[in-house]
Amino acid sequence: MPLLDVKELSVNFSTKEGVHHVLKNVDLNINKGEIVGLIGESGSGKSTLAMTVLDINSRNREMSGNISFMEERIDNLKKERMRNIRGKHIGSVPQSSMNALDPLVKIRSQFFETIKAHTDMSRQEMLSLTARSLEMVGIDPLRMNSCPYEFSGGQRQRIMIALSMLLSPELIIADEPTTALDATVQLKITTLLKDVVQQKNTSMLVISHDLHTISRICDRIYIMYAGRIVETGTRDEILNDPVHPYTQKLLASRLPLMCEPVRVKGISGTPPSTLKKYEVCEFMERCDKVSDICRTVRPPECTGNVKVACHMECHLE
């Protein structure tokens, strides 16, 4: 039984403009000790998935399907129980988390706040726990009395990771942990994430739009397009042997570091609107391998043993 098991999850948001179909029949699971990457472009619904698991986007939301965490259904839990799970059992490094710390409150107090919300430790225990977790991410524990504004962006990101790991949660959800950081810092942060997961023996879901930065730490990868998982596989499968045209294009759009000038192709066209309901493959408009079957029949869903949501896969077999 996987640690986190998302099954047939669909999420709609009703707004003034109409109903946004943000997630469509998503299957995703994370095993213990695994780092799973969720890759998609902006607007593909990857952050919505994270927020739905954490149940922090319940406004105007309609959802179906089920989410289990440690063999317990968590998609319709009471608010109190969910609050208990968040932070203690599922840690989260939110998007633009560099700014998620209150810049004028001491690091120590912000850590204590989290500890107090879930446990009743003595002051001494809290201090040593805070020191240990800061040390783990490479921040001098003596600086726990400083305020976040005294730290650089990369350091704040480290502190945020320490905060999310504080109570040794079974799962960490990191939403775009390296976006907005300098290239050299990105490398350090991804390395740190990997180290921390190994050290604490937890699991992690990493969400990003950047396949190349994140793939270096992932065991398995899910590729999401327009609210659907279009391909999944181990890191090597995705990187060396991608099947879905979208995954192929994503990989091909990597900028090479070569001396001779070459041209790389991006993915032309615009992402589909979440307002529209698609009867066929969402990627058809931007795909250059469209065949007749694509225009009439929906590709298979990425569930169970199906690893690619594309007709091409069926033809190959």
């Binding site: 472009e41 994503l250 790389v264």
Partner: peptide
């Protein structure tokens, strides 16, 4: 996004 950025560079 990375893939869109490539288009802008091109």
């Amino acid at each position: 996004d990375a893939s869109i950025g490539v288009d802008i560079l091109n």
